[in-house]
Amino acid sequence: MLTILFDGVAYGMVLFVLACGLSVTLGLMNFVNLAHGAFAMAGGYVAVTLVNRHDAPFLLTLPLAFLVPAAIGLVLERTLYRHLYTRSHLDQVLFSIGLVFMSVAAVDYVMGSQQQIIRLPGWLQGRIDIAGVGVGRYRAFVILICAALAVTLQVVLARTRFGAQLRAAVDDARVARGLGVEVSRIFALTFAVGSGLAGLGGALGAEILGLDPHFPLKFMIYFLIVVTVGGVSSITGPFLAALLLGIADVAGKYYVPGAGGFVIYTVMIALLILRPHGLFARAR
């Protein structure tokens, strides 16, 4: 039982890292980027390719799994996305679906449609015993990394100048500009970091979530749920939402294999109707 809980926590942690970038772009910048999963997929494929084909050490690939999608994100933001911030949500949806279709087909073409299995180093394989509970080493590793990331993000957003500027830019871009905040630079940087985190999540999650060219479509709804349920007022909301979703999904698949999807989708719809700003959002 505790093992399932543990697996669920690891799953949820990965979901959080995957989705937190989206919670900023969608939640704060109000941009519907359904292609968020494509950046995650990019990170996953970077890691898998380096480890499996070039024998790179797993740990070394993680920074690259962050940097490559971040760079792609930055370029796309500067060239394409930024033209669409003021457009209707429908336009944003169409545009990002277009990107998803392109990325799915391109990855399929280059890498093939099969599921990618990442070769983990020996020290991350197998299980260890913590207080009598069998725990996957890799999952423990993932939890540690993701927890560290979550704390870092919280600190960056709450304590640093960058965080303050981002919050100001999101709150009222015009006023922020008047105060000398370079709004477009902040947005670009945020978008890049969000994409990078998604990539990192994709790399860490390759083992847990699976990785194939349909990744962006398969997990789109999960990211959206994390953001919707978590709300956008802080990092804590999406974090708790991701944990809940992870545990519910893993436990659901284990105990009631029939009902898992129902519960999750129903909860999402109900929340959207009853609490459009998210479960953990404070009423403004």
């Binding site: 394409l80 033209h83 669409l84 457009r87 336009d91 169409l94 545009f95 679906i97 277009g98 990107l99 998803v100 279709f101 392109m102 990325s103 799915v104 087909a105 391109a106 399929d108 073409y109 449609s113």
Partner: peptide, 17 residues
Amino acid sequence: PQYWHFWIGLILVVLVL
């Protein structure tokens, strides 16, 4: 075959932009 959604995606992106 199999990759034609790439072009559909491209059409969408161009259409919106």
